[in-house]
């Protein structure tokens, strides 16, 4: 597999905008690419294209060596078991506890009992600081806690590709550090490709192999953090953080 994700002139319409997005981007296996840019620039749509939630009107989207347009629903369902996705809304099942939410994909796909999963899941919950909250329902969690739970649910199946929409959104400083540590550890021990969108400067930007600046549905620049930090675009520098501006 040459690329884990490959978008080739993938065009799609943005709700509420009169312009169309057009993305061309290739992400190698094991690479971490951060998408930065203003809100409503199309970063979330790019992730949805990769997750197969939105079909491109033109162009192609290849994910883990599969052309998404060529897959039937059964094949797409199988492929999605290899992809972990965290959307802006955590989407936790409201009638399940945090623990049952996190174990749901394993219980569903592997047919194992929730209780037997405890030794496997507990280290992940510990690392994300969720162990004391495991018996709470989503309505009893803060947004940051719910997003951490959604991340745990995405990681529990050991995905080859992680698509994260604003992974640091709503997280307090300690949570952000834990998420950073968990993702770093995850990347150290496995070959996982990460595509994450961010509209605020975050510690994750420095961890990324490349940063893609998205504006008005186009990827305007792609490169390592150091190269991007030298670019004169003021808007880009604002998304990279004040250190870069200086």
């Amino acid at each position: 597999m040459k690329y884990a994700v490959e978008l080739n002139r993938a065009r799609a319409g943005m709700t509420g905008e009169d312009w169309k997005t057009e993305f061309t981007l290739s992400v190698s296996p094991g690479e971490f690419v951060a998408l930065v840019g203003p809100g409503r620039s199309g970063k979330g749509l790019l992730l949805k294209l990769c997750a197969g939630l939105v079909a491109p009107e033109e162009g192609t989207v290849r994910v883990l060596d599969h052309d998404l347009a060529a897959l039937d629903s059964e094949q797409l369902t199988e492929l999605r078991q290899r992809i972990g996705v965290v959307l802006q809304q955590p989407g936790l099942r409201s009638n399940m506890t945090l623990y049952t939410n996190v174990t749901l994909p394993m219980v569903y796909h592997q047919g194992v009992d929730e209780a037997t999963l405890l030794p496997k899941v507990l280290p992940l919950l510990d690392a994300l600081g969720l162990t004391p909250l495991q018996k709470l329902f989503p309505s009893q969690l803060t947004l940051g806690e719910a997003r951490c739970a959604a991340l745990a649910r995405a990681l529990v199946m050991n995905p080859e590709l992680l698509l994260l929409d604003e992974p640091m959104g709503g997280l307090d400083a300690e949570m952000a550090q834990r998420v950073d540590r968990v993702l770093a550890e995850y990347r150290r021990t496995r070959t996982v490709t990460i595509l994450a969108s961010m509209h605020n400067p975050s510690v994750l930007l420095e961890r990324a192999n490349r940063i893609a600046f998205v504006r008005q549905g186009r990827i305007e620049a792609v490169g390592p953090y150091a190269d991007m930090a030298k670019m004169p675009d003021i808007a880009l520098q604002a998304y990279l953080g004040s250190r870069s501006v200086a």
Binding site: A51, L53, S73, T77, E78, L79, R80, Q81, I83, V85, L87, Q89, P90, G91, L92, R93, S94, L104, P105, Y108, H109, A150, R153, M157
Partner: peptide, 16 residues
């Protein structure tokens, strides 16, 4: 569930 994106989250986990 649809409004809270629970259905979307299930689909993304490969849960039909």
């Amino acid at each position: 569930m649809r409004v809270a994106q629970e259905i979307t989250a299930l689909e993304l986990m490969g849960i039909g």
